[in-house]
Simulated assay, not measured.
Amino acid sequence: MELIVLGCSGSVAGPESAASGYFLRGSSGENVLLDMGPGVLAAIQRTPEVDPSQCHVIFSHMHADHCLDFPSLLVWRRYHPTAPATVRHKLIGPQMAQIHLQRAGGDYPDQPDNIEDTFDVLVHQVGEGDFDATIWPVYEVGELRVFSAPAVHTTESYLTRIQDSDGTSIVYTGDTAPTDVLPRFARGADLLVCEATWGECGGDKPEGMHMAGCDAGKAAREAGVKTLLLTHIPPWGDEEATFRGARSEFEGEILIAKSGMKLIF
């Protein structure tokens, strides 16, 4: 699989990065966008490997910094003069995703934009306990298998695990506070794309919202992942301190997400 970071700035778009957005390509060529925060569509246009008309979309949750470029994606898919979408792709999101996105793109609040012309809308299905691909609810996206688990955030939010036909897998946290569900769900993953909004170790930050570097490192260690990619660090965040917090818990490979970063695994 190949992962391209389209945007990784936490909570708001930053001067050097769009807000949350990631492109994933499976070994069979299936394309998936994970979240579409402000600035992500512009980043896609700077990334030749990504055709916005040929992507499935998965939303972790519906906060603006993770979904606000979606109405513009609809315009591209419907009206691009030479490269519109020619098939419906899958869109996986929270229960509220369809009405939320349709209202965001509608002409008036009482006239939502029906997105079913271009997307087959599905709702995250969650499993429980230790992750087991043989029994966990799953969506098939080409040869990719998409699994979900509940995150802990201020709104309906999900952890996502995507597994390729060759067995490689990534786990994307979206936004979540520390939760015992994460290491059980991410067990043995090749890559954990983990939010680390609260800096080194959080301190007196609000509960039930986000993770810090040390939380991300702990989750990576307990899950036994190969690589930890720290992301969702806001423009005012301290990347070095966040890395230091993660390293205090995890001895494996740790990377800081950067716009345009490409990882193959």
Score class of each variant (00 low, 15 high):
residue 203 G to Q: 03
residue 182 L to D: 09
residue 193 V to N: 01
residue 181 V to C: 13
residue 139 Y to V: 01
residue 225 V to T: 07
residue 148 S to F: 01
residue 159 L to V: 14
residue 140 E to M: 06
residue 167 G to I: 02
residue 215 D to E: 10
residue 214 C to I: 01
residue 202 G to T: 13
residue 151 A to N: 03
residue 201 C to L: 03
residue 178 P to D: 12
residue 207 E to V: 08
residue 206 P to Y: 05
residue 186 A to S: 15
residue 162 I to S: 04
residue 215 D to H: 15
residue 209 M to G: 09
residue 194 C to A: 15
residue 154 T to N: 14
residue 207 E to W: 11
residue 181 V to A: 13
residue 178 P to K: 07
residue 170 I to A: 00
residue 190 D to S: 12
residue 162 I to G: 04
residue 217 G to F: 05
residue 211 M to I: 06
residue 225 V to Y: 02
residue 149 A to M: 04
residue 167 G to P: 02
residue 229 L to E: 10
residue 204 D to T: 04
residue 158 Y to V: 05
residue 224 G to F: 06
residue 158 Y to H: 09
residue 199 G to C: 11
residue 158 Y to W: 07
residue 176 T to H: 13
residue 150 P to K: 08
residue 151 A to R: 02
residue 156 E to H: 10
residue 153 H to D: 09
residue 222 E to N: 13
residue 197 T to P: 00
residue 138 V to M: 13
residue 226 K to Q: 04
residue 199 G to T: 07
residue 185 F to W: 15
residue 193 V to P: 06
residue 215 D to Y: 14
residue 159 L to A: 08
residue 180 D to A: 12
residue 153 H to F: 15
residue 140 E to V: 03
residue 160 T to Y: 02
residue 138 V to E: 12
residue 217 G to Q: 04
residue 226 K to G: 00
residue 219 A to I: 06
residue 199 G to I: 12
residue 179 T to E: 14
residue 165 S to W: 10
residue 144 L to H: 09
residue 223 A to Y: 10
residue 181 V to M: 11
residue 202 G to S: 08
residue 214 C to T: 08
residue 162 I to R: 06
residue 201 C to A: 13
residue 166 D to H: 09
residue 221 R to W: 07
residue 189 A to D: 04
residue 215 D to M: 05
residue 187 R to Q: 12
residue 226 K to A: 00
residue 216 A to R: 06
residue 184 R to G: 09
residue 183 P to C: 09
residue 155 T to S: 06
residue 216 A to G: 06
residue 176 T to W: 13
residue 167 G to F: 02
residue 207 E to G: 14
residue 220 A to H: 04
residue 139 Y to R: 03
residue 208 G to F: 08
residue 171 V to T: 15
residue 150 P to I: 05
residue 154 T to V: 06
residue 221 R to S: 11
residue 171 V to H: 15
residue 151 A to M: 04
residue 228 L to F: 01
residue 177 A to F: 13
residue 167 G to N: 07
residue 153 H to A: 13
residue 212 A to L: 13
residue 162 I to D: 02
residue 152 V to S: 12
residue 159 L to H: 11
residue 195 E to C: 07
residue 189 A to E: 03
residue 219 A to T: 05
residue 209 M to R: 13
residue 164 D to V: 14
residue 166 D to E: 04
residue 164 D to P: 10
residue 155 T to G: 03
residue 212 A to N: 14
residue 156 E to Y: 11
residue 195 E to S: 08
residue 168 T to M: 09
residue 144 L to F: 10
residue 167 G to W: 05
residue 229 L to P: 15
residue 182 L to T: 08
residue 222 E to S: 14
residue 202 G to L: 08
residue 183 P to S: 10
residue 227 T to N: 02
residue 145 R to Q: 05
residue 222 E to T: 10
residue 157 S to M: 07
residue 211 M to E: 07
residue 188 G to W: 01
